[in-house]
Amino acid sequence: MRILVTGATGFLGGAAARALARSGHDVIGTGRDLERGAALEAAGVRFVAFDLHKPPSPLLSRLDAVLHCAARSSLWGRWADFEADNVAVSARLACACAQRGLRLVHISTPSVYNATGLTRQVPETASLGPRFDSLYARSKYRAELEVRFHLPDATILRPRGLYGPGDSSLMPRLVRALRSGRLPRLSRQEVHTELTHVQNVVHAIELALERPAAGVFNITDGVSVPIWATLNRLAGALRVPRPTRYVPAKVAERAAALLEGLYRLSPGAPEPPITASGLRLLTRPMTLDLTRAREMLGYTPVIHPEDGLNEVIAAL
């Protein structure tokens, strides 16, 4: 199969492009990081530096499928940027795939559920909007709508809490917070959530390409993990103090919201050291219903979270 992978210089896109190439597929990866592009070439992926804000037609000739991983993935930023990078790019790509009869696997996020108030076994059919937890979540939901409008047969995957070798977001953020010594304990009770090892998402992508199924699919490791116990393990691996000073979550979220407001007064300001949506990831439990993925894609996680987290902790 000849497959285009967008965002191939990113964490998930790179892992997927390499895995697909190892499986014998003819893989073309796009991105704007030339150094990482060279590493992809060495792994058997043909790299093409390309700006997805331009019409994608030059990339789509003689393809069988497109895996769209590229996105602005951040808890901070301007709506105009999220709309341009996540909504408009996804719409343009889905429309082009529909015109050429190409299979499309689109990577979205369970962040779209954050404002629903649902916490246990959240299904893909959960009612979403009009309010969202972050501009990122809102943009990804809008992107999903565009994809389903232009290409109803597309497969949309929502992996939660991506981690693993090469992770540049989740674990590095937690490590920085622990090393700073400023992360308080935000809940007296344990909080259970689900994460997704990058190889489990790659496995789901391979299944979606091999046995197409239309619609949205939750993807996780399939086993919940205790957030604060995991942070304690990370602190032990880093040889830094565990978070013990208790601050009520609502107090911390209000402080973070105030800080965000101050940062927005300065155009072009960097991301604040804390954001309200970032804190909520540590204080609100969530598990996802994987029934659709299991039944329609044949998805079964290939990496258990205990093994995946042990791998990350050993690397630290």
Rank of each mutant, 00 (worst) to 15 (best):
R62D: 15
G10K: 07
G268K: 01
G129D: 07
V105A: 10
F50T: 03
A154D: 06
P212N: 00
V66A: 02
R131I: 07
E311N: 05
L151W: 14
I156N: 04
I3C: 11
K250T: 13
V5M: 03
R131V: 15
R264V: 11
I227A: 09
D64F: 02
P55C: 00
D133F: 03
T119V: 14
G181F: 02
L34H: 09
L183K: 04
H197G: 06
E311L: 15
A49T: 04
E83A: 14
L151I: 13
V147G: 01
R284I: 15
R254M: 14
H68F: 13
R254V: 12
H192Q: 05
R36E: 11
D26K: 00
E311D: 13
M286L: 13
D153M: 12
T193L: 14
T119E: 12
R120W: 10
G29K: 00
L178V: 06
P56C: 04
S57T: 12
G44I: 01
R264Q: 14
E35R: 08
A208G: 01
M171N: 06
P301C: 12
M1G: 15
V87K: 00
I274L: 11
A269N: 01
S127K: 04
E306M: 04
R158G: 03
L104R: 02
T196V: 13
D33C: 06
G31H: 03
T116G: 02
A84K: 01
V191W: 07
H68I: 09
V202F: 12
L316Y: 12
T291C: 05
S168H: 12
N86C: 10
F11T: 02
H192M: 09
A96V: 12
A276H: 00
S180V: 00
T244M: 08
T155D: 05
A269K: 01
F82V: 08
P159W: 08
I313G: 05
D81V: 07
F82K: 02
W76P: 00
R245G: 08
V87L: 12
E271F: 06
P123D: 03
Q189S: 15
A269I: 06
R160C: 14
L170C: 06
A213V: 11
K250E: 15
D221L: 07
L75I: 05
L281F: 03
A249R: 03
R179I: 10
V223H: 09
F47I: 04
Y263P: 03
S108C: 09
S187K: 05
V312S: 12
H197S: 08
L60P: 04
R138H: 13
L195Y: 13
D307S: 11
L93W: 10
T109K: 07
R72V: 05
L316T: 01
P165M: 04
D81W: 05
V202K: 00
P159D: 03
T244D: 06
L297C: 09
D221V: 04
L63S: 03
K250Q: 14
R211S: 14
R62L: 10
V45L: 12
S139Q: 06
R280E: 14
R158A: 10
L128D: 14
T109N: 07
E311T: 12
D26S: 11
L195K: 02
Y136R: 01
N200K: 13
A237R: 10
N86A: 09
G24F: 08
V240N: 06
A19V: 02
L186Y: 09
F217V: 01
L186E: 10
P55F: 01
E35M: 08
L288F: 13
E146T: 01
Y141K: 09
P110Q: 10
A70K: 00
S74R: 05
V112C: 11
